[in-house]
Design a protein around this nucleic acid. Structure first.
Lengths: 132, 132
DNA sequence: AATAAAAACAGTAACGATTATTGATTTTAT
DNA sequence: ATAAAATCAATAATCGTTACTGTTTTTATT
């Protein structure tokens, strides 16, 4: 059943992700990791990001911009997406896990979890707007 | 500034969407509307769905399956996505608008809203699983 | 250390959803 | 009835992502 073998590329990708708090996309991971290993291929980046996400070592974020973002922080937390600059930012907020129970109250099937993200204008975009 | 003109195609698309509660994709809209108007093009479907969503007459749903779904019901409500069959189902649940305030408590910028959907196994998929 | 099977690779082609282009057709204000 | 502007059908192009192929790494076994 497909034993996992070590790979330098996968390690580089994981290590790069751990240095970032801005939830980069596959392409950004590719551009950065390529500076250490110029022959790494984009397919390798995609394959390993998917693999790491599948085994739970990283998280894949879908925030409605059509591009997947990745996060080395797999602890439960929520994200904010700036509609001006596209930045994806961690939010510090109380748990809202209880919404899953609310959703299940009148529902026939089984609710396993939820996906939530918030949107608006980030701090720096808000401040830029005030000037104009 | 681009005055909106009536179009038979847009009307057909909107009317089709209003008959459906299953949040069809652009392709499904295309296949269905084509039965009334066989020469309508997929580009027209996409353009009008985008236009209708932009003016708020329909809602565009992104539920993480890589395909946009559309909903003629623009009243605030939440959706459930079945991880087995992919169905997108309306949920009847109490408002969770308060999570936006929670999110804004420790945040620098301005939070305009949130996107939430729930996932798990729908009623019929849950029942099928029990048999196996 | 040598071997060999399996996993992973680089490079590239292919894919699916969506958007853009273009010249023809509709719509609508005059 | 006219004409400008919006919309169209058809098709090409784009973008993010996945699949393929022959080669290279990894790792368990000798």
């Amino acid at each position: 059943m497909a034993a996992l073998k070590h790979s330098r590329q996968r390690e580089m990708i994981k290590e790069f992700l751990m240095t970032r708090k801005d939830h980069p996309t596959a392409d950004i991971v590719y551009m950065n990791v390529r500076q250490q290993n110029p022959t790494i291929s984009l397919g390798t980046v995609y394959r390993n990001l998917t693999l790491l996400a599948d085994i739970g070592e990283i998280a894949r974020l879908r925030v409605g911009d059509g591009v997947d973002h990745f996060d080395a922080d797999t602890s439960p937390h929520y994200h904010f997406v700036c509609t001006e600059c596209g930045a994806v930012i961690d939010l510090e907020m109380d748990s809202i896990e209880s919404i899953t129970e609310l959703a299940g109250a009148n529902f026939d099937g089984h609710i396993a979890g939820h996906v939530t993200y918030f949107y608006g204008t980030c701090g720096s975009c808000t401040r830029s707007q005030k000037l104009s």
